[in-house]
Design a binder for these strands. Structure first.
Lengths: 256, 256
DNA sequence: CAACTTATCGTCAAGTTAACGCAAACAGGC
DNA sequence: GCCTGTTTGCGTTAACTTGACGATAAGTTG
């Protein structure tokens, strides 16, 4: 928040052509966009909500949904609003958290636009909801091979990768996995979340013991559910824990 | 990055008086500032680098150092530049990471200014370096009682609290603690970092066993150092691990 | 040299994890 | 009805990790 701006600029040569050099340097302004990485599990695979861009730049390419922050609007409010407009989902009911901000010069050909990335977690819904802008939206399985190699428009590959990494890390110590599930769920469904996000196979027996041993993670409802095949499973709902103890450590995380 | 802006605004009543309603809504712009939470350990206590504001708003109040992003400049570059200008520290040599972005309407009385917070970790240096803007800077012990109760200008209490929480969490699973130390350090100095940041006492014997058991965390140099009192300690330098396994779990973290 | 301080090694009981055996409880085919 | 395949849920065991703490090493101070 310091307002003293020295009179030299070692990066003068990198200045965007949109803005003349000189005093305007001290008043460089940005539009700020919110981009949403909305994740869910579909058919046992991790999926992300994408829109197809209807106009340049990147016309016809897939991109993360998002929109600009309005005057008088907080970032979280913009994220909730965009989530509702683009997907029909009630943002306040979903897990939603800021990940980080991107403002690399030239990241958006339309000019200096900073993007604040948000991670959203949704249960497997019959999306996209028809109407409004949501018609352009579709769930797409996360393509780990194309991610990072020009899958999405703008720098959305990077944004999605960072959001994924946040989700992966947070599954370990926060009850984030339940946000992928409906109101009630089985331990097997919860395990499917971990397996899809971490891209690993977990032992059902050890997972069951571990999850039910974490205080406040899940609480049994007393109901049961008949899966398409196999023994009926006890239904659970989220507990009131905000952190997991003991943590659900990723197998082999960092182990060399 | 969607550019379709619906014609209604459910939060019209919240609009800042600075910006008229209507089409200008679609071109709301921000200046973007970087604010730095630069942490170090001084006299065994966690300290943060603060500046005293020389002009309104918040004249005379303590604040986090920072400055505005220039045209053609990436956020990380702004952080490195401000770190250098305000402290004389070579930013590229320090640990520096983005934490999150704040843009709550009215957070800065000068207008719509978004702030991207960065966390920096520095070893205990003879700071502040004289010259340039650094003369205004001073190390201040983190006042956990006043933090969150109007200690700092703007919303810097919130920013510092979030940066601290990031540092606390990251000590668990990343070799961040070594960034507080010099090129070489003893296990005792490393323990002092954990104790200062986590605000706990750790058993020296268990800590020693744990740290030296984490693969790639620290490597012995073969040298020794004579502390002011007590037995000489073996010197270590940082290893090449980027994640800690096993993690250095906070005692009682989340345990209820 | 005694007293004090910090570093380092070792022990042990309690808790946690990974691997895997096994019975329960469903659906579907015959 | 019975066998087969599947998933759930419970138990067992060896290996590992943690927390509490005893003991010794190797400096400095008085």
């Amino acid at each position: 928040m310091a307002e003293a701006i020295p009179d030299r600029d070692p990066r003068a040569g990198l200045r965007s052509g949109r803005y003349p050099s000189g005093v305007s340097d001290q008043r460089t302004v940005f539009r700020i966009a919110i981009d949403l990485a909305i994740l869910t599990i579909r058919d046992g695979r991790l999926a992300v909500l994408l829109i197809e861009r209807g106009k340049a730049p990147f016309e016809g390419r897939a991109a993360l949904p998002g929109g600009f922050v309005r005057a008088g609007e907080d970032l979280d409010d913009t994220a909730v609003r965009e989530l509702s407009e683009e997907t029909g989902l009630e943002g306040r009911a979903l897990h939603l958290e800021q990940v980080r901000t991107y403002a690399t010069p030239g990241r958006d050909p339309r000019g200096p636009i900073a993007s604040v990335a948000y991670l959203a977690i949704a249960p497997d819904l019959p999306m996209p909801v028809a109407g409004t802008d949501a018609a352009r939206a579709r769930w797409e399985p996360v393509d780990h091979d194309r991610l990072g190699h020009g899958w999405l428009a703008f720098d959305h590959d990077t944004i999605l990768a960072d959001a994924l990494e946040r989700a992966r890390a947070k599954l370990e110590y926060a009850p984030l996995a339940t946000a992928f599930c409906g109101e009630t769920f089985t331990i097997g469904e919860l395990r499917a979340v971990y397996e899809a996000v971490w891209q690993v196979r977990l032992d059902p027996r050890n997972f069951h013991r571990k999850v039910t041993g974490v205080s406040g993670f899940v609480v049994p409802t007393g109901e049961r559910r008949n899966p398409p095949t196999g023994r009926p499973a006890v239904l659970y709902r989220r507990g009131d824990a905000t952190m997991l103890y003991p943590a659900m450590l990723r197998p082999g995380s960092g182990r060399q």
